[in-house]
């Protein structure tokens, strides 16, 4: 049999979009982010957004797992050995719908406020180089403190959820009362924990803006948190729909 030598691939770096070669030469794919003050904000923002997109996957999987447990548990007949037949023991929870709708509204407005905060800081970041020219004033003030409004409305949502829990407890549905109530508490609590995580980051962003960091740096935090906030809103709509339609 013939001895073969692999064809040696000697060619210039390709220019396809597959790898880092389409990136700028210096601050391209290769900078690991240890260069302080480097004007790599664009790539850092992109990286942070990518990180968020990836981080959303396990959160979705978490709720997929809860949902499948929910659906399975709801449809699951259990053996009643006394009668030797399979019975269903699912008790629908009577949800405080009006209150939950108000909460949904709060979270919706919170999400809108987050979006406005995101656009505000994006504009500021775009104008930052102009501002830095001495003697130039665009006259544009800071506008409304959208970030604060986001946190406030988010806190309102959490308080509303807490009230909803109290209502459920008054109606006799505790965590261990029945499988259905267990799931209601589980889903809302998990969502709340994730929302609180987002609020902590927003507070961090607020602290950072006090620290007078460059606006581009703040922008990354606000931008990513805003997208996360929208995701939290969609997640809540999903949970609400699940609890409502699959009672």
């Amino acid at each position: 049999m013939a001895t073969l030598t692999p064809p040696v691939t000697v060619h210039m770096p390709p220019t396809n979009k597959d790898g880092g070669s389409s990136l700028p030469p210096i601050y391209g794919g290769g900078d690991g982010g240890r260069r302080d003050g480097a004007p790599g904000y664009g790539s850092r923002l992109r990286r942070a957004r990518l990180g968020l997109a990836v981080a959303i996957a396990p959160i979705v999987m978490l709720f997929v797992a809860f949902t499948s447990a929910y659906v399975v548990r709801q449809g699951l007949p259990t053996l009643d050995e006394k009668t030797n037949t399979y019975v269903r023991d699912w008790i629908p929870v009577s949800l405080p719908i009006a209150l939950l709708l108000v909460n949904t509204g709060l979270l919706l407005f919170s999400s809108i406020a987050a979006e406005l905060a995101r656009r505000q800081i994006t504009r500021q970041a775009a104008l930052a180089p102009v501002h830095s020219i001495p003697g130039v004033s665009l006259g544009a003030g800071k506008g409304l403190p959208w970030l604060g409004i986001t946190v406030l409305l988010g806190g309102g949502f959490l308080a509303g959820q807490w009230m909803a829990w109290r209502v459920l407890a008054d109606r006799g549905f505790y965590l261990a009362t029945s499988a259905s109530s267990s799931f209601v508490y589980l889903l809302t609590a998990t969502h709340a924990v994730h929302l609180i995580g987002g609020m902590l980051v927003l507070l961090y962003a607020a602290v950072v803006s006090l620290l007078d960091k460059p606006v581009e740096s703040r922008r990354i935090v606000v931008d990513v948190t805003a997208w996360y906030w929208h995701f939290m809103f969609l997640l809540w709509i999903y949970i609400f729909a699940l609890m409502w339609f699959a009672r």
Binding site: R34, D36, A48, I59, H194
Partner: peptide
């Protein structure tokens, strides 16, 4: 769980 992409450390 929500791994906030914190600002990259420099």
């Amino acid at each position: 769980m929500e791994s906030m992409p914190m600002e990259v450390q420099h």
